[in-house]
Design a protein around this nucleic acid. Structure first.
Lengths: 336, 336
DNA sequence: CTAGAAAACGGAAACGTTACCGAAATCTAT
DNA sequence: ATAGATTTCGGTAACGTTTCCGTTTTCTAG
């Protein structure tokens, strides 16, 4: 049905090897080049990627495993990665593992069976054991958002300096005179949660102040969770003057809770949120937030992967740490 | 390196054809079956999908083209679809086309070149011309959220009854005594926007009332847009007693605007939102919303696709229309 | 026990590329 | 004009399956 290289060879009188060479960017005499191009367009030839894959063992496809698609942070990064990889001819197969380690492990197996050329992963499993099938096959792996200590010399990782981010936010609040600062963090066993909490604690320590651990509220990175945590903090700490919320969804939930309680920002409570510039501009007063460099994360992840794939990236695997930014709004009130 | 069927044949003394038959669920004598299974596990054999694809011309991969990943509605549905298809061995390649018709067309070409076995699409292009390359190759196509009139006998589509949904919401407001009802809809040229607006108008007409078109605010389905539209409506219509917001992101923006303005829900303004049960429960008062059956949409899309793929779905293509639900909360106040 | 039907098997030809490597064509310089 | 160097070319053997279809084995029934 569809034209093959053989048909091109027949029409041009050239050999298969020459057609193949042309198709793969090799040198071909100008006049042959023209003949091949004409034949290709006459016959509407397109390379059969199946046959090509069989020979090269490359699928031009890469797998992406994430805990949950339904989060702006994740969705935005996936969009960026997908866009870049597609421009290089790579298809991106998404696997959502519902923050479930078993599903995550199965996803790796699934992708390896599907012969992806590489795996991008925002890992749920902490020790990286789920990636074994991929590493055994020498597939390039790039992690993002969270790194895995065991694997730090084996796979690339792109993360932000979460400790620094949280420290910046907390220090800013302290510098503005706040002493009783609440923090809403994610699950206690998640890399980013721990780091962000550490930054909060560090800011207190460096200022020679002490924090009260009852001002720390563990949540689950969801809108609902943020709402709940904020209500709890408000109920338990009448003296609290500021809250730092450590991801977008929880920030949203917290804002809603504050509004419901009729608390005026920033007069009665100062707040620093996380991510999503867009939301921060919509809210009045404009929210002061920590922003992660989403574009840069996406770009770094994609380009690490492309480097590994092209084999050009001979330099050893490593962690890329990007900086966050404290984007000032008007949601922090100077305190005396 | 990796074991092939030939190795299995050698170890078991059977022919290639028999191994193949076994692998594809054919009948094999019990004792041979056992021998093959032993060999497979001894040699850690796995089928080479490239070779299989070359023979069968099937990639066990399906493409999904969406306007924008970064929206709960889309992300949730993708998650559901991906989950179901993966269980049937299909990988899902995502293409985000940024609500851009040119990119959407390129995405179709990209996926066709990548030999996907089918395409799932939430279409941006209104006449369906972008799908030609896929239809020419007789690939099954399933649309969702929006249907395309030109293609209604050619491809399956899964949509909700948007007219009815908006009519339900509007009628409910009217029945509660509201007469000056604002509506925030998406872009005027998008299928769902038009339908939802039509439902609003229809509710007025059926009640023998007239609507004032200045209460209709076109927006862009974003948080920011919803915020802006709500502010505009509030500024221009002091007498407005209720607003119907027609998607999740805009509902969020609208709520934020209302809170900022210090307007009390539902005493001073009634509101009906859209989608996202989770959010509606977080907000106080609990939001009355129109919910779309996301699970069912995802399921229907995936099962339509699987039917077409298995060839079993001989029944002709058609549009599946699902019902929405008016989920009552406490954000609508009876008006006298 | 045996003829005939039914089930299970296996050889070999594809599927459409890529890549090795010896052969042919073209170019350079004297 | 020609030797030698440099390009470019092409025949052919894989890559690892699936499938056609003729052969062998096993089963059934009289």
């Amino acid at each position: 049905m569809a034209a093959t290289m053989k048909d091109i060879a027949r029409q041009t009188g050239l050999g298969l090897a020459t057609i193949s060479r042309y198709l793969n960017g090799g040198k071909v005499k100008e006049q042959n080049r023209a003949a091949i191009e004409k034949a290709i367009s006459d016959l509407q030839f397109t390379v059969n990627e199946f046959a090509r894959s069989l020979k090269t063992s490359k699928s031009k496809t890469i797998g992406v495993i994430i805990p949950e698609l339904n989060s702006t942070f994740v969705a935005t990064i996936i969009m960026l990665i997908e866009d870049i990889l597609r421009k290089s001819g790579y298809g991106v197969i998404i696997c959502d593992c519902s923050t479930n380690e078993t599903l995550e492990k199965e996803a790796v197996q699934f992708l390896v069976r599907k012969n992806v050329d590489g795996i991008i992963n925002m890992p749920v499993c902490k020790d990286g054991s789920h990636l074994k099938p991929a590493l055994d096959k020498d597939l390039p792996v790039v992690l993002f958002d969270r790194s895995i200590a065991n694997l730090k010399d084996v796979v690339d990782a792109v993360v932000v300096d979460n400790v620094r981010a949280a420290e910046d936010a907390t220090r800013y609040l302290i510098e503005n005179g706040h002493r009783k600062i609440g923090i809403i963090v994610g699950p206690g066993d998640v890399f980013t949660s721990r780091q962000r909490l550490a930054g909060y604690q560090q800011a207190y320590e460096k200022s020679g102040l002490e924090y009260d651990s009852s001002y720390i509220s563990f949540s689950d990175y969801s809108v609902h969770g943020g709402h709940e945590s904020m209500n709890r903090l408000l109920a338990e700490h009448a003296g609290m003057t500021a809250v730092f919320v450590t991801n977008y969804e929880m920030t949203l939930g917290a804002i809603i809770a504050i509004n419901e309680a009729g608390i005026k920002l920033p007069k009665e409570l100062s707040i620093i949120g996380f991510d999503n510039l867009q939301l921060s501009q919509v809210i009045k007063p404009r929210l002061t937030i920590i922003t992660q460099p989403l574009e840069e994360i996406g770009e770094q992840v994609a380009s690490r992967m492309l480097e590994r794939l092209s084999g050009s990236g001979t330099k050893e695997a490593g962690i890329v740490t990007l900086s966050t930014r404290l984007q000032l709004g008007e949601s922090v009130q100077k305190q005396n």
